[in-house]
Each structure stands twice: as C-alpha cells, then as structure tokens.
C-alpha cells in the first residue's frame, strides 16, 4: 500500500468477511480525508498492523476466526496511543456495542452502512464525537444509574452529569446529534464531546470493575 498523504487520516480495518472488508476499504478510501492504511481478517495480524501502522482509527469486527476483536480494542486502549476504535456490528445491538465500549471502543458502525454514513461516522470520531444509538444510550442510562446508587464518593467523577443524562435521554428518543444540539442550544461538537466523555466513563468504570473482580478472584484463590 502506498504511504498515505499527510492530510489523510489512516484507518485500519479488521473484518474477516472478505467482501464486507473490501466494501469497507472502498467506502473509506472514497472519502478525500480518509485513507485505509491496512485491512486484515485476523486478530493476530490486526495486532501486528496496529503496532506497525499506528492508525488514527480502527474498524474492528468482534467475531474473528482467531479470537475476539474485543482483545484488540482493549489492547489499543491500554497502549494509550491516539488510535481510536469503532466496533463493526450487523445490528447495532447493545450486547455487542456495549461490550466493545467497555473494552475501550469509541462507537460502532453498522456493516451495511452506506459509504456516506461510514465516512460520516469516521470523521465524527476523528472530530472528537462518538457514534451512538438509542438502545446503547438507554443501556448506558441504566448502567450509570446503578453505579450512581452504589457510588460511595460524592462528587464521583465517574458518574454522569445532569447534562450527560439529558443528552442520553434525547438519544433514546431517536434524536440525532444536530437535533440535540438545537434542542439544548449547544454545538454539534459539544454533543459529540459529551458522548465521548460518557464512553470514557463507561470504560473507566468497567476497567475498575474488572480490576476489582480480578483482585477478588486473586484473594479467593
């Protein structure tokens, strides 16, 4: 592959279904600001490509033949590089999306999305926003409300602010980012930033939970 022009954002695609992968490559390259730096169908190769390419964005399918895409997403998060991940999903269902968000993904992308939507989502991510859908928003509201009840510290920086809750509630109703921006009299970008912060909180919380769980298991063992 030719080196990317400087102004283009690099994308790494990890999807095992060849036709779908090819289509994604085409869709990404079709946009003038995006460039596919690598594409692969295996987790192992995906890891290696990430290390060597350090792409700006990664599109990761979860069900890979040699492992789960979640491992790659988690690995990227833990490396704390500028690379950000979107999970590839067929239905956008909370089961897949939330697992990926907890692992550190910044959003999701439907596999059959139109070229325009694919480019939109990637650019939104690069701009600091995060793709979200009503079902994921509702799940997040429920999850954070549980954490808020369990929270021992006040103020707890890992629970949602009133504005964040408001935005999630509007998303559950089906409102789009620009509509929410209009309704709340804020900019599109601010809405995106809020959502990204919510994802970060989710990831932090999940990480804490995982650590505690591991510690408990360690103690029990």
């Amino acid at each position: 592959m030719s080196p990317p022009p400087l102004h283009r954002n690099t994308v790494l695609i990890v999807e095992d279904e060849p036709a779908t992968r090819e289509r994604l490559v085409e869709a990404v390259n079709a946009h003038v600001l995006l460039h596919v730096a690598g594409a692969t169908g295996s987790l192992h190769e995906g890891m290696a490509l990430y290390e060597s390419l350090q792409p700006r964005v990664m599109l990761v399918d979860l069900g890979l033949p040699d492992g789960s895409g979640l491992d790659l997403i988690r690995h990227v998060r833990n490396r704390q590089t500028p690379t950000e991940s979107l999970v590839l999903t067929i239905f956008g269902d909370e089961q897949h999306v939330v697992a990926a968000l907890k692992a550190g993904a910044r959003g999701y992308l439907l596999k059959d999305s139109s070229y325009a939507t694919i480019a939109d989502h990637l650019l939104m991510l690069i701009d600091g926003g995060s793709p979200i859908n009503p079902k994921v928003a509702r799940f997040l509201l429920g999850q954070f409300s549980t954490w808020e009840k369990e929270s021992q510290t006040a103020p707890d920086p890992t629970i949602l602010t009133a504005r964040e809750k408001e935005i999630l509630t509007l998303i559950t109703k089906g409102y789009k980012r620009h509509e929410i921006a209009n309704l709340l009299n804020i900019s599109n970008n601010t809405v995106g930033t809020h959502i990204r912060r919510i994802y970060e909180k989710l990831s932090v919380h999940s990480n804490i939970e995982a650590t505690q769980e591991a510690a408990q298991r360690g103690l029990l063992n």
Binding site: P134, K135, G174
Partner: peptide
C-alpha cells in the same frame, strides 16, 4: 414505546 421508537428511526 419510546424505547421501541428510538431505534426505529435509524
């Protein structure tokens, strides 16, 4: 119903 309608929009 809102929980049904929100996802329907997409």
């Amino acid at each position: 119903i809102v929980m049904q309608l929100g996802p329907l929009r997409e």
